[in-house]
Computed example of a mutant assay.
Amino acid sequence: MSEKECTLHKDKRKKMLQRLCAGLLILAFIILLAILITWAVLQPKKPRFILQDATIFIFNVSAPNILTANIQVTVYSRNPNDQIGIYYDKLDVYATYHSQQITYYTAIPPVYQGHKDVNVWSPFIYGNNVPIAPYNGLALTQDQSNGAVQLMIKMNGRVKWKVGTVTTGRYHLHVTCPAYIPFGNKNTGIVIGTGIKYQLSQSCKVSV
């Protein structure tokens, strides 16, 4: 093979590779554009959460800064989308007080939430002899003596969206539910065994 023929062969291979790369880029662009258009048309909405109630079995501050708690919460979740499903890959529930975590994480099993579907979870969140900041220990004791404690029930996890047969990557989900609990006032609660259930019906803030 002459040097001229070899050069022509290399040029042809180079042009073929360039055309292949250009074709792949165009195809990727078309697929991405189709996904974006579909996403814009469907207008996905965040799931809605409501903290329905909280049942207090144990909530005890011992020493200045040690807390033992056992609480069961009922959380309502609804997918408001007509054509988009939601995969909850991971979801952990816990309680905070004045921005400090006061219970362990409780995991909710992974679940798929279809179009307009509703899920209701009733996990127990608890902590045994959890150290808390001294000022929070004093504030909790004071709040209990005043008859009410403002907690935050939080849910952190990862979700995926399902549109037809296409499933997106994972997105972080953060849910914050205010829980104003009137301790000691049995007129506002229902005795459930050794606990007292308080109806809250509190809307939660959701960010994805």
Rank of each mutant, 00 (worst) to 15 (best):
L200F: 00
N79P: 07
Y135K: 02
F183G: 09
K197W: 04
Q199D: 15
I102Y: 02
W121H: 15
C21I: 13
F57K: 07
K15T: 03
T167L: 11
Y97P: 00
M16F: 09
C6H: 04
T38P: 01
V208L: 12
D89H: 05
Y88F: 12
I192A: 10
A40G: 09
L51A: 01
G137L: 07
V208T: 13
G189V: 12
T38R: 09
Y105V: 02
F59E: 09
L42K: 01
G85P: 06
S62W: 01
S122A: 14
N119S: 14
V149G: 02
N185R: 14
A63K: 15
S203N: 14
K186W: 09
V166L: 11
M1P: 00
L91D: 10
A28L: 06
K160G: 00
N65F: 05
R78Y: 14
F59M: 09
L42N: 07
Q72P: 01
G195C: 10
S203W: 14
Q202F: 05
W39E: 06
I26Y: 15
T194I: 14
D82P: 01
G169S: 08
Y94E: 03
M16I: 08
N156A: 03
T167M: 06
E5L: 05
L27Y: 10
W121G: 08
S203H: 15
I35S: 04
S201N: 15
Q83H: 04
V120M: 15
K12L: 03
I86R: 08
A179H: 02
K14V: 02
T106A: 11
T165R: 15
C6W: 08
D89I: 12
N136K: 04
P64G: 03
K46C: 13
V73R: 09
P182Q: 15
T141R: 14
G169Q: 08
L17R: 01
V163N: 11
L24F: 06
Y87K: 02
D89M: 09
Q150T: 08
G195P: 15
M16V: 06
H172F: 04
V61P: 00
Q83T: 04
P131S: 03
I181A: 02
G147Q: 08
G189H: 12
L20M: 12
K197Y: 12
K14F: 05
K45L: 12
K12R: 03
Q202C: 07
F29Q: 07
A69F: 08
T96L: 00
W39D: 11
H172E: 10
N65K: 03
P47L: 05
I26V: 15
S122W: 12
V149L: 01
Y198F: 15
R78C: 11
L33H: 11
V75I: 15
G137Q: 11
Q18V: 06
G195F: 11
Y112S: 02
L200V: 00
S203R: 15
K154L: 09
D143F: 02
G193D: 14
N70S: 05
Q144S: 10
N185K: 10
Y198K: 11
C21Q: 06
T168Q: 04
A133P: 00
A28F: 13
A40E: 14
N81D: 13
S201K: 07
P80F: 13
I30Q: 13
R158H: 05
D89Y: 09
A139S: 05
K205M: 13
W121M: 13
G137E: 10
L151R: 00
F59Q: 13
I37C: 08
K205E: 12
